[in-house]
């Protein structure tokens, strides 16, 4: 199987490197010279003891759960909406993907532009409606929500496209049969469409989870995880430790990265288990 070779060649080495980085006490010097002493789980202990760990974990959970819930439900609603052919539907659906074309540095910067507390267009709209300006990015109470909103926006096209294809794969005669049985549109969706869409939904959510856990560029560009770590997630923390400072600390950075991998692993196991059970049932 060529894919096994491909996996071995391109993923195992980086993964090995990341694990190795996290188990050694790297300084910049030993990073370059390659003689870092093996310290076992010292980096992990350091990470767990860090005051940033608790908040970062909590922010990761909030960010991921809220993002997924909204991305998926909005994506599904749009997919259902677009699944009926109407004038311009294909063109509009294509336009929905435009956010994906933009490099994250550009789309995230645009969001931070729009949410700027002084000159942002969002606060200008609020002012026009008579609402006090919100410090979207500079208040510790708001910054996590702001980056989550931006992330939802970026994630909608992905959910839309995958779920739309999933809907198209459902044979139309099933719908027709249900309609003949006198099921209303809503009933048809919940009783027929949604169950049939389950495999695709599951993989969409799982992939969404993996991608959301990993998100760092959006947060990094919009708030740098601040202010005072109010929007720091495990991914941004890992990046900051490893690359965001004049003096990188590769070890702890890699350790946080591996923690994220472990979290995804747990969900992956749940998914595979569920899939197997389903396979056994069928």
């Amino acid at each position: 199987m060529p894919v096994v070779v491909y996996l071995l060649a391109f993923y195992v080495y980086p993964l090995y490197r990341n694990v190795d980085l996290s188990l050694r006490n790297y300084t910049v010097r030993s990073f370059v010279q390659g003689d870092a002493p093996f310290t076992g789980f010292a980096n992990y202990a350091k990470v767990f003891a860090d005051a940033t760990f608790g908040p970062a974990l909590w922010h990761t959970i909030v960010f991921t759960v809220v993002s997924l819930a909204f991305q998926f439900s909005i994506g599904l609603a749009l997919a259902v909406f677009f699944s009926r052919n109407f004038r311009l539907s294909t063109t509009l659906r294509a336009l929905f993907l435009v956010p994906w074309l933009l490099p994250l540095i550009v789309s995230s910067s645009t969001w931070s532009w729009m949410l700027n507390s002084e000159s942002g267009v969002v606060n200008a709209v609020l002012a026009a409606l008579g609402i006090d300006p919100v410090n979207w990015l500079t208040s510790p109470d708001w910054s996590l929500w702001s980056v989550t909103i931006a992330n939802i926006w970026i994630g909608i096209p992905f959910n839309l496209v995958v779920l739309y294809s999933g809907l198209q794969a459902i044979p139309s005669h099933i719908h027709e049969a249900a309609a003949l049985d006198g099921a209303s549109g809503w009933q048809r969706f919940w009783r027929v469409t949604f169950p049939l869409l389950r495999p695709v939904s599951a993989i969409t959510l799982l992939l969404g989870l993996v991608y959301t856990l990993k998100v760092f560029d959006i947060i990094w560009i919009m708030t740098k995880g601040g202010p005072s770590d109010a929007s720091t997630t495990l991914a941004t923390w890992s990046y900051r430790l490893g690359f965001g400072n004049l003096l990188p600390s590769f070890g702890p950075g890699a350790a946080v990265g591996n923690l994220l991998i472990v979290i995804a692993l747990v969900f992956g196991l749940v998914y595979i288990r569920a899939q197997r059970r389903q396979g056994a049932a069928a």
């Binding site: 993996v210 990265g257 992956g268 196991l269 998914y271 595979i272």
Partner: peptide
């Protein structure tokens, strides 16, 4: 399963 984990590796590390 491995494919799933593979996607978790941060881009910078890759």
């Amino acid at each position: 399963f491995v494919l799933l984990i593979a996607q978790m590796i941060p881009g910078v590390i890759m």
